[in-house]
Computed example of a mutant assay.
Amino acid sequence: MVSLTTSLALFSTLLLTPTTLSAPLDLERRDGAVYASTISSCPAIPARTAPPSSVHDLRPDDFSYTMALGDSITAGCFSRGIQNNVLASFGEWRGESYANGMDPGAITLPNIMKRYNPSLSGGSLGSNPIPELCYGALCPIGPIGWNSKVDQLNAAQSGAMATNIPHEVNDYLIPQIRARKIPSTAFKYLNLQIGSNDLCGMCHQAIVGFGPSSPDEFESSIRKALEAVRKNIPNTVVNVVGVFKVSDVYSMTLNQPYCSQLLPVPHVNLECPCMLLGGKVGAATRALMDSLMNQYNERLIKIVKEYQTKRYSDFAVLWQPPNIPLSTFPVHALSSVDCFHPSIKTHQLMAAELWNRLVGNATERAVPLAWSESLQFRCLQEADRIHTDTLI
Rank of each mutant, 00 (worst) to 15 (best):
L4D: 13
T5I: 11
T6D: 09
T6H: 14
T6G: 04
F11A: 15
P18G: 02
P24I: 03
S37A: 08
I39H: 04
S41D: 15
S41W: 02
P46G: 04
P46I: 10
T49Q: 11
A50R: 12
P52I: 04
P52W: 11
H56Y: 08
D57A: 10
D61N: 15
D62P: 13
D62I: 03
F63W: 14
S64E: 09
T66S: 11
A68R: 07
I73V: 09
T74C: 08
G76S: 04
G81H: 04
L87H: 04
A88S: 14
A88Y: 09
S89T: 01
S89W: 02
E92S: 01
W93M: 13
R94M: 14
G95K: 04
E96V: 00
Y98R: 09
A99G: 11
I107P: 03
I107E: 05
K114P: 05
Y116N: 10
Y116V: 11
S119C: 06
L120F: 07
S121F: 08
N128Q: 10
P131Y: 10
L133M: 11
C134S: 01
P143C: 05
S148D: 02
K149M: 13
L153Y: 06
L153I: 08
G159E: 01
A160S: 14
A162T: 05
N164V: 04
H167L: 13
V169P: 07
I174H: 10
A179M: 12
A186E: 05
F187H: 14
L190W: 00
L190Q: 07
N191V: 12
Q193M: 10
S196D: 13
L199R: 07
G201N: 14
M202N: 08
M202T: 10
M202P: 00
H204C: 02
H204D: 07
Q205T: 05
Q205D: 02
Q205A: 00
V208P: 04
G209P: 03
G211D: 11
F218D: 00
F218G: 04
E219D: 05
K224H: 06
K224L: 10
L226T: 06
I233R: 01
V238I: 15
V238G: 13
V246I: 11
V249Q: 06
N255T: 06
Q256E: 14
S260W: 04
L262K: 08
L263Q: 06
V265S: 12
E271S: 08
G278D: 02
R286V: 03
L288F: 09
M289C: 09
S291L: 13
S291G: 07
M293V: 03
N294M: 11
Y296P: 07
R299D: 08
L300A: 07
K310W: 08
R311C: 03
Y312L: 05
F315C: 12
W319E: 00
W319K: 03
W319M: 01
Q320T: 15
P322Q: 03
L326C: 00
L326K: 00
H332T: 10
A333C: 10
L334E: 00
V337D: 04
K345W: 09
L349Y: 14
M350P: 01
V359K: 08
A362Y: 01
A362F: 05
E364P: 01
R365I: 12
A366V: 13
V367D: 00
P368S: 05
L369Q: 03
W371G: 00
W371I: 10
W371Q: 07
S372T: 15
S372I: 05
L380R: 10
A383W: 06
D389K: 02
I392F: 12
I392S: 13
